[in-house]
Amino acid sequence: MALTTAHQSAGAEANSATSGRPARKPRESGRLRRQEGRAGYVFLSPWLLGLMAITAFPMLFSLYLSFTNYDVLASWDQVEWVGLDNYQRMFTEDPSYWHAVRVTLTYALIAVPLKLAAALGVALLLNRERRGVGLFRSLFYLPSLLGGSVALALVWRAMFSGDGAFNDLLSLFGIEGAPWVNDPTWALETLMVLAVWQFGAPMVIFLAGLKQVPTDLYEAAAVDGAGKFRQFWNITLPMLSPVIFFNLVLETINGFQGFTSAFVISNGTGGPVYSTLLYTLHIYNEGFTEFRMGYASALSWVFLIAIGLITVVFFSTGRFWVHYSDGEN
């Protein structure tokens, strides 16, 4: 869902600074200003209501639930306050929890860099091309539109089964493949391939970023005798670093939120042997198949805090390696 959200948000920060400048004339009367202030809240009211009712209240409610044993079937008078039990259970008595943490981290740490590397690589190749760029760009982008669907996950499941098309392909080269999705060693890797396959969206963003790198920088570097690699390292990467940063934040958060492919490929179990038990799948199973909603709320809150921390880490380390051209550079 939040396919393209993060890089925009990062862009937003840059923008909100500039848009804060009031364009209003000082002579404007107080009455008009008040009218505009009122109108502002009128226009904002649906969003504000949504923020309160659909986001803020549920968050607080979920925090409350995380300290209870609430399950869907029980009536409210059966709900008990259990203190930190849910959190304690998570860290000490739920082995699946640690499987979920490990699987999710592995998935995000490997799939996200691979996907970004693929996106950047292809963008660099395309950037050099004169003809057919539009066509290539569109076709490479297609999987990003389709890849999150149940249909593609079903196709992946069929392609990467023991007697699926991928092994058929391998057998042409005399290789006997594994049962991929039914093999705990390979099932998660299969999901990663599906993620990398959707490199199109970050690629499009990289391409646009590359177009904004001033060509005279390369020319100057070439005159100085810098080789291709040096140019890439000293010019392209720094110039592109804001875009890389946006893509990284975006894709990491997306990576942590993967659900559909793991659900479909493991038939909702996170198997074989927990190998595809993404954190979100664990939340879903605890909350909606076991109906331990209190526990699932606790899981959600820890998830939220973890993602919050990761975002903070990104933004606080970002200033050491992200170069904004209108800033210090």
């Binding site: 968050m59 934040v249 879903y284 959600s300 939220l304 975002t311």
Partner: peptide, 11 residues
Amino acid sequence: LLLPSHVLIIP
């Protein structure tokens, strides 16, 4: 924008 939907789904 950055809030994962899975966090809100239960409440």
